[in-house]
Nucleic acid binder design. Structure first.
Lengths: 343, 343
DNA sequence: CTAATTTATGAAAACATTTGCAATACTATT
DNA sequence: AATAGTATTGCAAATGTTTTCATAAATTAG
């Protein structure tokens, strides 16, 4: 119980206190079965008494795993990724790993810097959001032979193991939902697609799906807004007040859709009577806004949890094999979209 | 440019390639002024060529800082802390530190486990949310002499350096706002206060302030809801439909307030005409809901940024001195509260 | 009761750095 | 030209572990 504050308390201090050799102390931690229960008890008592805490840096230096996994996300701040981060964190924690987290603010050069930083810390793996990364990042990963994982997106051609959803499909599902309801005047609010392959995939799929049935979106019905409720609200306000109003708004994600919804409410428009709105993502909260937001559900929690599990397996396996998992999307129809075709 | 994949690339490989001693390579990194510019160039070229990345584990072992700071939050998932995490992360990144992040789900025993885990990683400091921690945690921090910081809350009596706001005051401000508007029938929706000193402080301040003017809250007007929009919505639905409806709802934070707002909307109540709602926090998005949420603004970003800055200063200083910073609160009056007293 | 195992422990090398000290080479001063 | 600095570099010890190998003790087999 009492604490010897005398000098450093390292493995040899413990050894001394327990009257054994450092090797034995090390073994009690790493291969308890190899040491006599009696000595083990002695050692544990010494550990308690001295308040000894193992030094992972020293272990790492010895070639053991550092027990950390680096995760680089575009942003922590918005609801978007907090759910995956949480699930991923919990999941790797279960496997005994700690999470090093960094964000790059949609700047792929900063992403590179973060990966590098993590490499200095000798993380056992890096997880990145999305499939698009700078050449430097890809080169670094290959060169350093560090286990890497692409999170959130799914693509058959992903060079890295990946766990995520097909954003192309997400865009298509959203579009089809609106088309099925009879909408032809569709407004689009998407973020800048530069350095954001999720948004890019979704948007191009939307255009494809629309094009297939001959629907064109006039310029004034397609606008950009970052992933921010307030800025999206602003953009929607503009879109809805200048020019002839579309019958439906397809939004790059749920944050934007919420902004659009609030904009409509502010303008006194009834949703879905006067305007249909669909988002992508199904973030926490999307179900609860009034009216409930129709959206394409991306199972963030599943993705995070699964990714954490598979990745730690991958890292700890002796012969790790490439894996890639596509998580299912689902169109969640709530109350912000309605059919134009009267039955 | 080309990469020698031959064996480990460590500081001695670099030394060999640059035809100098390992010491000199080390010095180029740590004390560049002590090495001849010409040799430095040679070494840098070798570093490039071999793709060498410094090993922080080895540095750490040598007594240098690990360059990591551990942050333990109750939850990553909800909007509540994502803003502080982001700001804190960015802030410490500027000072060259990396963030180890963990969450404990409002379980202080898990908080202890996380701190311990971080200690194994030899973090240079731990930041915790709130002032209430388990005895074990407090003991551990003191015993290991690890720099620690209390984030989010402010209190004069905090044993740890802290950067945050006075939650007691937040509760009081919210209450006073409603009282000033003439409300006397006030409903309360707060989370479980066990292990959550923020909520506890706020709630007790509310009761104090109410008590001072002789207002009592009947049991059926005080209910519990976790920090979840949907569950809060549910709780509000119940509160608003059973028994005589209060004229105002004071919510433990903005997530709950949003839930309450949506509940009111679902019930067809007009806010603020039929019901006033006030939250605490002013999260991202609170300004944008329709109608805009009246709330007590806790400057999350400022707290995170300031905390990161002060804490890294503290850690890197030769004679660190205790500090504690109280961040100002502000009642942000938007459109969910109205005066009952007709002027 | 001795030989052959098995179990338990310790000694020492290895891991990738940093740094104090010593040695060398160079420059400025008288 | 000799002396005193100063700038640059290398050597070796130190950091806290883990693990291989060897040794000693205890157990089992014959």
């Amino acid at each position: 119980m009492t604490v010897f504050q005398k000098g450093k308390v390292d493995i040899v201090a413990v050894a001394k206190a327990a009257k054994v050799s450092p090797s034995t102390v090390s073994r009690t931690f790493n291969h308890p079965d190899l040491v006599n229960p009696a000595t083990r008890k002695k050692i544990n008592k010494a550990v308690q008494r001295l308040g000894y805490i193992r030094n992972r840096a020293a272990q790492t230096m010895h070639g053991k795993r550092s027990g950390t996994i680096g995760l680089v996300v575009p942003t922590i701040n918005h609801a978007i990724f907090s759910e995956v981060i949480q699930a991923f964190s919990d999941s790797i924690d279960k496997a005994g790993f700690s999470l090093l987290l960094a964000s790059h603010g949609y700047d792929l050069n900063r992403e590179y810097a973060m990966v590098r930083k993590f490499l200095e810390h000798r993380v056992d793996g890096v997880a990145l959001v999305g499939l698009e990364h700078s050449d430097a990042t890809n080169r670094l990963i290959k060169q350093q032979k560090i286990p890497a994982l692409a999170l959130w997106n799914y693509s058959e051609e992903s060079p890295l193991p990946c766990v995520g959803a097909d954003n192309h499909l997400a865009g298509r599902l959203a579009t089809e939902h609106l088309l099925n309801l009879g909408h032809r005047d569709i407004g689009l609010i998407f973020p800048e697609t530069q350095g954001n392959d999720r948004a890019q995939n979704r948007l191009s799929a939307v255009h494809d799906a629309l094009g297939e049935v001959g629907v064109v979106v006039p310029d004034e019905h397609e606008t950009q807004a970052p992933y921010s409720v307030s800025q999206a609200k602003q953009a929607a306000l503009v879109l809805l007040t200048t020019s002839k109003r579309p019958t439906a708004l397809l939004c790059g994600n749920d944050v934007i859709a919420q902004g659009a919804l609030f904009a409509a409410q502010k303008l006194g428009l009834r949703v879905p009577e006067d305007l249909s709105i669909i988002g992508i993502g199904d973030f926490k909260g999307s179900a609860d806004v009034e009216p409930g937001l129709t959206t394409i559900r991306i199972p963030a929690e599943t993705i995070g949890a699964l990714a954490g599990e598979k990745f730690t397996d991958f890292i700890t396996s002796d012969d790790p094999k490439y894996f890639s998992i596509r998580c299912d999307l689902e169109c969640v129809i709530r109350q912000t979209t309605r059919s134009l075709v009267t039955p």
